[in-house]
Design a protein around this nucleic acid. Structure first.
Lengths: 245, 245
DNA sequence: CCAAAAGTGTTGCCTTTACACCCATGT
DNA sequence: ACATGGGTGTAAAGGCAACACTTTTGG
C-alpha cells in the first residue's frame, strides 16, 4: 500500500511559511429570510456578472483582511438592511474551484432571519440599487451555486426552527397564535392542528399574554402575544428547556 | 441613519477582479474519531510550531489549488489512515485573524469516524511520524483553536449519532447488542436501559442477525449482528426511516 | 342575523420508561 | 457449582393525534 503523506506540507506541524499560490479569495454569502403575509421570502439582488446577467443572486461580499466570517456576515446584513443583532447561523462552505467566474472564490454561506416590517421601516436609508424580497417558492435559477446554497440554508432553517424559538425574529413583536401557527405551517410546509398547536405553545410557558386584541377585523378579534425571550434564556441556562414544535 | 453599502465591493454583482490583498490561506482540519474498548478517541499529532511546541493538534493540510474542501478532507484522511470512503461531515469555519501563528489561515473543520481496528491493520503503511489515538476525555490544551474545534465536532457527532446510523462506522462489522449499547452510552454520555435499547434497535429492522455468537468468553456468549446498510438506504429513499436513539 | 375567523376539551393510541429474573458459557 | 455477563416481558404514565361545536366581532 503506497502512501503519499510524506511530501505534503502539514499546516499544523511542519509548514514554515504561507505561499501565494495557495491563497484564495473568500466571500461570505447571506441568505436573508423574511416572512410576510403567509409567505417565506428571501432578499435577493440582480447579478450583473457574466454569464449570470439577468439572474438573481444572494447578497455577499469578500472577506476583509482582519475580520472573521461572522463579522463579515454581520457587516453585510447591516449594509443591506440597516438592522443589527439579527439571528445568524452558518450554513456551509462552497468551494468548487469553478464556482465563480472571476476566479477561485471559496464562499461561506450564512442565513439570517429578519422581520420584513422592521426592514421596511429603514428601507429609505438603503442605496438606490435595492435588494428585493422574492417568495421562496418562486426562486429558481439563481446565479452561481446560489440555488444550492439556498436549498441548504432552507433545510437548515426548517430544522432549527423546530428546535429553537428563532421564528419569532421573523414575526411582528405582537402576534396572534394563528399567525404563529401559519408561520410554522409555511416554513415547515406542513399542516398543524389548531388545538394541539395552541396547547403545546401555551404549555411552553414562554408566551406573554399581552391582554390586547386585534382591531379592525371583521370577525372575532384574536388575542395578541409576545415571546418571552428573558424567560427563554433563563430556562435555557438551567437546562429546563424543551422547545420542540 | 447612515449607510455604508455604497462603497463596498459586492462579490456577486459588481466586482471585476480579485485582488491579492484579499486572498487568504485556507486549511482543512480533520477531527478523526475512533472507538475502542468503551472509549471514544481522537487521532492527534504533535505540533512542532511555536508557540504550540509540545502540544497536540488535529490533522490538517492546506487547501490545494483545484480541490474542494471536501476533497481536501478526503485526501487528508487517506494520507493518515490509508482508509477511504470514511464518513465525513463538515463542522464549521474558524476564521479569527490571529488563529494561526504563520499568518492568516482560515480553516474548515470536518469530522470523520473510523474503526480503530481497521486503522490498525494499515498502520504499518503510514510514515514514521505517526498520529496517535488519545482518549477524548484526556484531551486538553490542543494547539491553535483546536480545542474549540474538537468541542464543536463532538457536539455535532453527539447530535448526528442519534439521528443517523453513523456509529456503525466506528464499530467492528460484527458486534453484539451490548457493544452497540456501550457505544451509544459512551458517545452520548448517558445510561440506557438494556431491554428498552434492544427493543428499539430490533424494531428498526436494520440489524442482521448473523446467527453467530462470541467465543472464548467466560460467560454466556452474545449473538453477533451487523448493520444492514442496504436496507437502510432503501428505507431512506422511500422515506420510511425513523432512526432515533 | 349572517359571515368569518377565534377559541376551547376529551378520548384513544402509541411511545417511553421503569423494573427483576432466568440463561448459557468457562473455570 | 459458581461467577459472569447475556437475554427476555409487562405494566403504568405520558405524550401525541384526531376530532366538532360555541364565541365574538363587523357588516
Amino acid at each position: 500500500m503506497k502512501m503519499t503523506t510524506s511530501n505534503t506540507a502539514n499546516i499544523n506541524t511542519r509548514l514554515s511559511h504561507l505561499q501565494e499560490e495557495t491563497k484564495f479569495s473568500i466571500s461570505v454569502d447571506c441568505v436573508i429570510f423574511g416572512y410576510d403575509t403567509s409567505k417565506l421570502k428571501v432578499l435577493l439582488i440582480d447579478c450583473n456578472m457574466p454569464p449570470y446577467v439577468g439572474q438573481k443572486s444572494l447578497i455577499g461580499e469578500l472577506l476583509e483582511a482582519r475580520e472573521t466570517t461572522t463579522q463579515a456576515a454581520k457587516r453585510i446584513l447591516k449594509n443591506c438592511t440597516s438592522l443589527k443583532d439579527l439571528y445568524l447561523e452558518e450554513v456551509s462552505v462552497y468551494s468548487h474551484p469553478d464556482r465563480h467566474p472571476l476566479g477561485r472564490v471559496v464562499t461561506l454561506a450564512y442565513y439570517s432571519l429578519i422581520s420584513i416590517t422592521e426592514y421596511e421601516k429603514h428601507i429609505e436609508d438603503v442605496e438606490n440599487k435595492r435588494p428585493e424580497w422574492i417568495e421562496l417558492e418562486q426562486i429558481k435559477d439563481l446565479a452561481f451555486d446560489h440555488q444550492k446554497i439556498l436549498r441548504d440554508a432552507y433545510n437548515r432553517l426548517q430544522r432549527t426552527v423546530r428546535e429553537k424559538p428563532i421564528g419569532f425574529s421573523m414575526l411582528p413583536k405582537k402576534f396572534t397564535l394563528i399567525q404563529l401557527q401559519n408561520f410554522y405551517e409555511t416554513v415547515l410546509n406542513i399542516e398543524l392542528d389548531r388545538r394541539n398547536f395552541r396547547r403545546k405553545l401555551m404549555a411552553l410557558g414562554l408566551l406573554i399574554d399581552l391582554k390586547e386584541v386585534q382591531n379592525n377585523v371583521s370577525h372575532r378579534p384574536a388575542k395578541l402575544y409576545s415571546f418571552d425571550f428573558e424567560k427563554y434564556k433563563q430556562k435555557q441556562n438551567i437546562g429546563t428547556l424543551n422547545f420542540e414544535i
